[in-house]
Amino acid sequence: METPSQRRATRSGAQASSTPLSPTRITRLQEKEDLQELNDRLAVYIDRVRSLETENAGLRLRITESEEVVSREVSGIKAAYEAELGDARKTLDSVAKERARLQLELSKVREEFKELKARNTKKEGDLIAAQARLKDLEALLNSKEAALSTALSEKRTLEGELHDLRGQVAKLEAALGEAKKQLQDEMLRRVDAENRLQTMKEELDFQKNIYSEELRETKRRHETRLVEIDNGKQREFESRLADALQELRAQHEDQVEQYKKELEKTYSAKLDNARQSAERNSNLVGAAHEELQQSRIRIDSLSAQLSQLQKQLAAKEAKLRDLEDSLARERDTSRRLLAEKEREMAEMRARMQQQLDEYQELLDIKLALDMEIHAYRKLLEGEEERLRLSPSPTSQRSRGRASSHSSQTQGGGSVTKKRKLESTESRSSFSQHARTSGRVAVEEVDEEGKFVRLRNKSNEDQSMGNWQIKRQNGDDPLLTYRFPPKFTLKAGQVVTIWAAGAGATHSPPTDL
């Protein structure tokens, strides 16, 4: 069977082979063929449309019947899901209200924590001031004790010197008594010597008188005998007598002179000795008097100093007792304040721990409710997609609110971060928990396990030699990294520990 286009092609070929045509004729024939082709295509399209309309009418009838069946089946399910969705919305509203209440309680707890922290800071300042005052008082007490020990040692030294001076005074008084006794003995010996000298002088005078009498008696006897002796021998006898008398007189005078000289010499020697002894004793007595006077003056001065030191010692002891009493009071006050502060800190920690436990429990309940609501929403969306139902505006708002919801909680030295990733086909969620104590904190952990970043959050360098970082993902083997023995993380510095297959460059001390 030939198509209209094939017939047109045969006809035009025959005409062209029979007679030659002009260009205008050819153009018109071409346009006519195009119109015929378009008409044929339109006829085919109309036939196809008619057949499709016939099929569409049958399909519409089948769809109508199916919609009636589906509407009867879905009406009950939709009512049940609407009821469950209403319950879920009520639960979500109650959870939102509970969350708002918990946020209010958390803000209240934070305000109480700030207030307690301020009070604690003030108490710590008072405690530091009390400890500083206690240290000052202890230093003052130590200085006073040192001064007291010095004063006591000086007192003992002065008492020793006073005892020595008293012994010296006793010795000097004994020496003075001995000197006085020697002086009295010398004076007695001097008086005795003077008496003996006077006696010797009297004896000498008496001997002179006796010698004169004997001489006169001898002259008288000789004169008497001379009268009786011969005149011839008188001159010879007289001359001999005169010579004998002269010789006797000379001898007697020599003896008297020698005895006189010896007596005067002895007397002068004894007198000089007595005078020297008297002068020496008088000098000793003067020196003893002077030394005794000086000793008395020094004793008086030392007694005055001793009394002054005793007064100072009594004042120091009184002040020391006052300082000890004040120190005891300060210690009791400090202990009482410290006990009160520790009790308040313990109560505050217990209260904060209780509130944190309650908040953690409520947060766990909220997370469980969020997971249940998310599961209900997934089931509802799956059924709506299976039944090709359009979601209600309320469910769209709930989905938008659930997809944009995120929370971040800080308290008790722990930080909890939650992130949620969404897509049109599926939804997944993960959470990161970080707890830090000390100078070094974990700043970031790569989700794909490529690196771990640490930061020194203090103002001092931290030695991290032979420290270890351990990481384990589920049931995978435990991964451990040990820092070099001499590694030190500077204040405020960040160090990144890269995985072996991350392709990073080893560049200490920032990249390991």
Rank of each mutant, 00 (worst) to 15 (best):
Gln234Asp: 12
Lys208Leu: 11
Glu214Asn: 15
Glu253Phe: 10
Asp230Cys: 03
Asp243Gly: 13
Leu183Pro: 01
Leu241Lys: 11
Val256Asn: 05
Arg240Thr: 02
Lys265Ile: 06
Leu188Phe: 03
Arg216Ser: 13
Tyr211Pro: 05
Asp272Val: 15
Leu245Lys: 04
Leu188Arg: 00
Lys181Ile: 02
Tyr259Met: 05
Val227Lys: 06
Ala244Gln: 02
Leu271Lys: 00
Lys180Gln: 01
Ala244Pro: 10
Glu214Gln: 05
Glu194Lys: 04
Arg240Gly: 04
Phe206Gly: 01
Asp185Cys: 15
Asn231Phe: 04
Gln246Ala: 10
Tyr267Ser: 00
Ser212Leu: 12
His252Arg: 10
Arg221Ile: 12
Glu194Gly: 03
Lys208Arg: 05
Glu214Thr: 14
Glu186Asn: 12
Ile229Lys: 09
Arg221Pro: 13
Met187Trp: 08
Arg189Val: 08
Glu202Trp: 01
Arg196Val: 08
Gln251Ala: 08
Ala244Tyr: 00
Thr199Val: 02
Glu202Asn: 04
Glu213His: 06
Lys233Asp: 14
Asp192Asn: 00
Asp243Gln: 15
Glu217Asp: 13
Arg220His: 15
Leu183Glu: 04
Ala242Thr: 14
Ile210Phe: 06
Ile210Gly: 01
Arg240Leu: 15
Ala250Gly: 15
Met187Pro: 01
Glu228His: 02
Lys208Pro: 00
Gln255Pro: 01
Leu263Thr: 02
Glu202Gly: 09
Ala244Lys: 08
Arg216Cys: 05
Phe206Ser: 03
Gln182Met: 03
Lys261Val: 15
Arg220Tyr: 14
Lys180Val: 12
Ser239His: 13
Asn273Trp: 01
Glu213Val: 07
Leu226Met: 12
Glu186Cys: 09
Val256Pro: 03
Glu228Ser: 03
Ala179Tyr: 15
Val191Trp: 04
Glu194His: 13
Lys270Asp: 00
Ser268Leu: 05
Asp272Tyr: 07
Gln198Ser: 07
Asp192His: 14
Lys260Leu: 00
Glu264Thr: 15
Lys233Asn: 14
Leu263Tyr: 08
Lys265Asp: 09
Ile229Ala: 10
Glu253Lys: 13
Gln258Thr: 09
Leu241Phe: 10
Glu214Tyr: 06
Leu183Ile: 12
Leu226Arg: 08
Ala193Ile: 07
Thr224Gln: 12
Leu215Lys: 01
Gln182Ser: 03
Val227Tyr: 07
Arg189Met: 00
Gln234Tyr: 10
Gly232Cys: 03
Asp185Trp: 12
Phe237Leu: 15
Val256Cys: 05
Leu215Val: 11
Glu257Asp: 02
Lys180Ala: 08
Arg216Leu: 10
Leu226Glu: 15
Glu178Pro: 14
Ala242Met: 13
Gln258Asn: 07
Met200Tyr: 09
Asn273Met: 11
Thr266Pro: 01
Lys219Asn: 09
Lys181Met: 08
Gln207Asp: 03
His222Asp: 13
Asp243Met: 02
Arg240Ile: 13
Glu178Ile: 15
Gln234Pro: 00
Gly232Leu: 04
Asn209His: 04
Glu223Gln: 15
Phe206His: 03
Tyr267Arg: 00
Gln251Phe: 01
Lys219Asp: 01
Thr266Gly: 05
Thr218Ser: 11
Glu236Gln: 08
Leu204Glu: 05
Arg216Pro: 05
Asn231Thr: 10
Lys261Tyr: 09
Glu228Arg: 11
Glu186Lys: 02
Glu194Tyr: 09
His252Cys: 10
Lys261Phe: 13
Ala269Trp: 02
Arg190Glu: 03
Arg216Ala: 04
Tyr259Ala: 07
Glu214Ser: 04
Glu202Ile: 02
Glu238Trp: 03
Tyr259Leu: 07
Ala250Phe: 13
Arg235Trp: 12
Ala193Asp: 06
Val191Glu: 07
Glu223Tyr: 06
Glu202Tyr: 08
Ala193Glu: 06
Asp230Ile: 09
Met200Leu: 12
Phe206Arg: 03
Gln258His: 10
Glu262Met: 10
Asn195Cys: 01
Tyr259Arg: 07
His252Glu: 07
Arg225Ile: 10
Asn231Cys: 06
Arg216Ile: 05
Lys233Gly: 11
Thr224Phe: 06
Leu271Val: 12
Glu203Arg: 02
Arg235Thr: 08
Glu228Phe: 09
Phe237Ile: 15
Tyr211Glu: 06
Glu253Ile: 05
Val191Tyr: 04
Ala179Leu: 13
Val191Gln: 02
Leu204Asp: 04
Leu197Met: 11
Leu215Pro: 03
Gln251His: 08
Asp254Asn: 13
Arg190Ala: 09
Glu223Ala: 06
Leu215Gln: 11
Arg196Asn: 00
Phe206Leu: 02
Glu228Asp: 09
Arg240Ser: 08
Leu226Ser: 12
Glu223Phe: 03
Asn273Gln: 12
Ser239Glu: 00
Leu183Gly: 08
Lys265Leu: 04
Arg190Ser: 12
Leu197Gly: 13
Ser212Lys: 04
His222Asn: 13
Gln184Thr: 13
Leu241Pro: 12
Gln255His: 02
Asn273Ile: 04
Ala193Thr: 13
Met200Trp: 00
Leu197Arg: 14
Thr224Val: 01
Thr224Trp: 09
Gln246Leu: 00
Gly232Met: 05
Arg221Thr: 03
His222Trp: 05
Ser212Trp: 13
Met200Val: 09
Asn273Asp: 13
Phe206Asn: 04
Asp272Leu: 14
Val227Ser: 12
Leu215Cys: 03
Arg235Ile: 15
Glu214Leu: 01
Lys180Arg: 15
Leu245Gly: 06
Lys181Gly: 15
Gln184Arg: 06
Lys219Arg: 14
Leu271Ile: 10
Leu248Tyr: 10
Asp272Gln: 02
Glu186Met: 08
Glu203Pro: 01
Val227Trp: 12
Val191Ile: 09
Lys201Phe: 00
Lys219Ala: 10
Gln207Gly: 03
Glu194Arg: 15
Gln234Ile: 13
Met187Phe: 07
Tyr267Asp: 01
Arg190Leu: 07
Gly232Val: 07
Ile210Asn: 04
Asp272Asn: 10
Gln246Glu: 00
Ile229Glu: 14
Asp185Arg: 09
Gln184Ile: 09
Arg216Glu: 04
Leu263Phe: 02
Ala244Phe: 07
Glu253Ser: 03
Met187Thr: 14
Asp254Ser: 07
Arg235Ala: 06
Glu264Ala: 06
Ala242Gln: 09
Arg189Leu: 07
Tyr211Val: 11
Lys233Gln: 10
Leu188Trp: 05
Arg189Ile: 15
Glu217His: 06
Ala250Arg: 12
